[in-house]
Design a protein around this nucleic acid. Structure first.
Lengths: 420, 420
DNA sequence: CTATTTTGTCCATGCTCTTAACAATTTGCT
DNA sequence: AGCAAATTGTTAAGAGCATGGACAAAATAG
């Protein structure tokens, strides 16, 4: 299993660490560089191509690729003649039988488990829909662990190896200790998810990462945008997701910017009106009171407890109250997002969760406020962007699996001696 | 001069860059590691001590120190017996004659030039007080350049070498191109500061960095806190500075978190009341309308145009209107800061500029709002902190010089062959 | 006065990347 | 057909850098 090797911290950010660099550090870095190139290429790439794109020599690339071949992470295809003269190249691709990350998503309306390959693609997926708002933690985790067991069994049967597990949770988490701090909608508090899942699985050695669902959805979004070569939105964006509450995440240069505890991006409690309505958090005038699910539904004139689907139908049907609600919610999101964009110096907002399918309707209202309030627009002629997320329904699930894969890609050296 | 060698980008953040690591990369990293240890030690350190604290072997450290000695960056003291047995250690200290960074501060009420040694200490300082609110850019830069010339002459006469120049500006800057975008209080717009200063100095090869004054003040604050071993406030904080407007900067893990354009931290236009007063930025209800200089003074019942000093006297004198203003401004700062802390996941606020000397008075009002609005307080039992900055009057000036020094410390390899 | 401890240097060793040469294999031109 | 040119991938020699162990130097402890 070897999952204990997984990088657990989100280090890497401070390049000026106090740790010395040795010869092995070069290998680590360059091996990661080559593997990432292979995995993000889309199709098979030759050693010579890798050399040109990494800046390493063909000799070095050859050696590194051999290591990856031995480890079973990549595979050679039969040589193929390229356009033009020259010896045919031997394409190298990520091995289907290689390492896979397991992603888990625990939400109020579903639990899901998936596997993600080194290319970042979701390979398998198990979902159970349900109403888990008030479920008992141990009991639900037991159900989840049965799904994980089945997934692991399938993965091993397919000849692949499990690199680790990451759990997406709808609340504030402590990634350092794999704990859930507070998930209001599950009504869960202060649970050692990592420990509980290890116990339920009977695998005390398994490394279990945890992450906030919005952060992980944003992680998935980065991959999707990168594949579309959407450079702008890959680099820096604020992800805002509408669920019961409002979640968020910040991506800088394609990487999550987590903050002190990994909770950065929480925009739901940004101030709209300091003397406004009382929020569940104890403060007054938070965005959630203006643009959260309950507020949105109330403004649209729907009965309390209506679903996002019902709201969506009202809007699509052109109901005046619903349309007015869209305008009001958009304006509130715009006011809050403007404060955030000013402090963060970011230009792009991606709308996820329930907001994703309403992005076209919400965007004008948000943009109007942004254009009026973001100082980079006024003083630097910057353009602001509001787009719907492309991650779909299971973005957080995907992001969870991806997080495991990214840890492998960041340090493949640790997995070299674990041939299949 | 060799200033063209200076690291101009704020790279380093993305450890997973696409650049290959070669043998020379090891040297760069380890040389920087050793030099940073020497410069932050405070007193002389032996090679053996460096080896223990960096994780390198004594043999390697010896070789690296020799390189630094040859380059004139460090100096040996006469061997001194330590407590306990053993051969006396040869202390190594940063060379007084080594490289120095030049910092420049252009503000509405003064212009200043300083030198900063590799230890981060401000060694020399030239200040001209005045009223530069509407001054002509070229004319003012000519004055500045004469001060810089004199400073360079003194530095060279003292046997030291100039590593580069960094200019602190009271507005939005474009560090990538060394330009000033917009400085409302100087009434300057879109100036190629780097180019203008190079021309004025007659040194077309000189690398001129630019930075926002709040960001650079925050940089200085990091050093000061690190020296006091104030671990918490060194790592992550939001710096809020009260001048004419309100500036800010974000520090993460001891490093500036700049954002897409390097403007992150701009908290002056965070929303307090979406339907509030019209701001100069075009939006409604920005923090600046509630806590900027003009608003503060008006609330305190002082005549428009009064100085911060007059306000300070009113408050110290116990004037009821002034005390009420402090409470109102504190609350407004608290509301805005809470939104920012939630999005950033940061716990500490440092008050700089004119707010620094009012920190004790402002803190209670700010803290009251923070404790009520920051979700980490409620859901993670986090504590929030509000403190006055320790950088003093010339924090931005100091930070500018420090920025040059930090660039040298990050890559001393580039300066090895430039012996004095 | 001797044993012990610590520092700093030297040298052999090992790891990793680079350079240059070469074999393999295809295209393109005559 | 046949040969030059181009491209790929491998191999061997070489250079840079950190490690580890041995050793001299210089202090303290007993």
């Amino acid at each position: 299993m070897n999952a204990h090797r997984m990088v657990s911290e989100r280090s890497r950010s401070t390049a000026s660490t106090a740790s010395p660099a040795r010869q092995a550090s070069l290998r680590e870095h360059n091996l990661s560089l080559v593997l990432r190139q292979i995995c993000s290429a889309g199709s098979g790439v030759s050693r010579a191509h890798l050399a040109r794109h990494t800046g390493l020599t063909r000799a070095t690339v050859s050696e590194l690729v051999d290591l990856l071949l031995q480890a079973g992470m990549v595979r050679e295809l039969t040589p193929q003649a390229l356009a033009g003269a020259g010896r045919p190249a031997t394409p190298v691709i990520p091995a289907e039988q290689g390492l896979r990350g397991i992603g888990i998503d625990i939400a109020v309306d579903h639990i899901a488990v998936c596997t993600v390959t080194l290319t970042g693609t979701m390979a398998t997926q198990r979902v159970i829909e349900g109403e888990f708002a008030l479920s008992h933690p141990e009991r639900l985790l037991a159900r989840v662990s049965r799904m994980v067991e089945a997934t692991i069994a399938d993965t091993v049967a397919a000849g692949a190896q499990v690199a680790g597990v990451c759990v997406a949770l709808p609340g504030l988490v402590d990634p350092e200790h794999s704990r859930l701090r507070h998930a209001p909608n599950l009504n869960w508090s202060d649970l050692p998810i990592g420990e509980l899942l290890r116990t339920a699985l009977g695998r005390p050695e398994l490394a279990v990462l945890v992450g906030n669902d919005a952060s992980l959805a944003a992680t998935a979004e980065v991959l999707i945008r990168a594949r579309r070569e959407d450079v702008r939105a890959t680099a820096d964006f604020l992800y805002i997701t509408g669920e019961v509450g409002i979640g968020g995440a910040i991506v800088r240069r394609g990487e999550l910017s987590g903050g002190t505890r990994g909770w950065a991006g929480e925009i739901g409690h940004t101030n709209i009106d300091a003397n406004g309505e009382l929020c569940t958090c104890g403060a007054r005038g938070c965005l959630e009171r203006y643009a959260g699910k309950a507020a949105f539904i109330a403004r649209a004139g729907l009965p309390p407890g209506s679903s996002w689907e019902q709201l969506h139908r009202s809007i699509a049907g052109g109901d005046p109250a619903a349309l007015a609600a869209v305008a009001e919610v958009g304006a509130a999101l715009g006011v809050a997002a403007a404060s955030a964009l000013n402090v963060l110096d970011i230009d792009t907002i991606l709308l996820g969760g329930a907001y994703a399918s309403l992005a076209d309707q919400l965007a004008p209202g948000i943009l109007a406020e942004l254009r009026n309030r973001v100082i980079a627009v006024r003083f630097a002629g910057a353009e602001v962007y509001v787009e719907g997320a492309l991650g779909g329904e299971h973005a957080a699930l995907h992001g969870a699996g991806l997080t495991v894969v990214n840890a492998v890609l960041a340090n493949p050296s640790a997995w070299l001696d674990t041939a299949p």
